[in-house]
Design a binder for these strands. Structure first.
Length: 268
DNA sequence: CTAATCACCTGAAGGC
DNA sequence: TGCCTTCAGGTGATTA
């Protein structure tokens, strides 16, 4: 479900809603959703700050860290009460104030870790796509000598953290680059254009509070708006908004991949 | 190193 | 209606 803009939206809301809350207890309805390192407990820990890296949320506690990945269908909802019996409710975090942080996750892929050191969880997570250290020069340097397809590279979180299937397809369209383009055939102009496109697409999506296709919700249970602005993602068989060609959908790395065959010419 | 495949899960949608 | 297949925004492990 959520990529960087959705997680960023959730992080902002959680900062407003639960910073300074003190955990009272956790109820694990689906135990695999929550793991804690040996000897650590969440009880009495206060939330000092909430950070994000790629698609991960990091709760900085007065001791320890809570690291969260929502994967495909995870949702974090802040509530005043505990629902009696919700089908997809997996974890219930109770605060001493009486508030609740509820973790819903239909497909049960999401994970929440209590750890001494966030790097234990984030060791394979690369530079965040909207951080200041991710620059055009850095991007160009990362692409140097690479032989894989550009979309495969962008999907791999140890390269750049935060991009997923939706925003990669949208960024490649914005930059007019075919998703199967081999990296070492990109020229400097294209690399720069792609860098600019990635940032624009992500910041626009954040402004729209993310994209709700099926499961993504904000912490109050609301939806994002960015699905209204998608130009290629899930627009297969519809006309390109630039040139009227029919948007195609192929499989790349097992993922649905959308592009305009006219605007994003394949270089061979 | 890359690439492909599976595994983890549940549900929706489409074909017959 | 029902059965079967495929697909879904993610990632880690394993195998080639």
């Amino acid at each position: 479900m959520p990529e960087l803009p959705e997680v960023e939206t959730i992080a902002k809301e959680l900062r407003e809603k639960i910073v300074n809350e003190v955990f009272s207890n956790v109820e694990s309805i689906w135990v695999r959703s929550f793991t804690q390192e040996k000897g650590l407990t969440l009880t009495n820990r206060r939330i000092i700050a909430i950070d994000r890296r790629g698609k991960y949320l990091i709760f900085n506690l007065d001791k320890y860290y809570l690291v969260i990945h929502l994967r495909m269908t995870g949702q974090l909802i802040v509530g005043a009460s505990k629902p009696s019996r919700d089908r997809y409710l997996r974890l219930v975090f109770k605060f001493k104030s009486g508030k609740y942080l509820l973790f819903y996750d239909l497909r049960k892929f999401g994970r929440i870790y209590l750890t001494q050191n966030p790097e234990n969880v984030l060791k394979n997570v690369g530079v965040d796509a909207i951080s200041e250290v991710f620059t055009a020069d850095k991007f160009s340097e990362m692409l140097n000598g690479k032989k894989s397809k550009i979309k495969s590279f962008l999907l791999d979180q140890k390269n750049i953290a935060g991009l997923g299937n939706i925003y990669i397809d949208e960024s490649l369209f914005e930059a007019r680059i075919h998703p199967e383009t081999v990296i070492n055939s990109l020229d400097d102009g294209q690399k720069n254009k792609l860098f600019t496109a990635i940032r624009k697409i992500l910041f626009d999506a954040i402004d729209n509070m993310g994209t709700t296709i099926s499961d993504y919700k904000t912490t109050g249970g609301g939806f994002g708006d960015h699905q209204e602005y998608l130009k290629v993602y899930q627009r297969q068989n519809q006309p390109c908004i630039i040139c009227d060609s029919i948007i195609e959908k192929i499989k790349l790395n097992g993922r649905g991949t959308h592009f305009c065959p006219q605007c994003q010419k394949k270089i061979t």
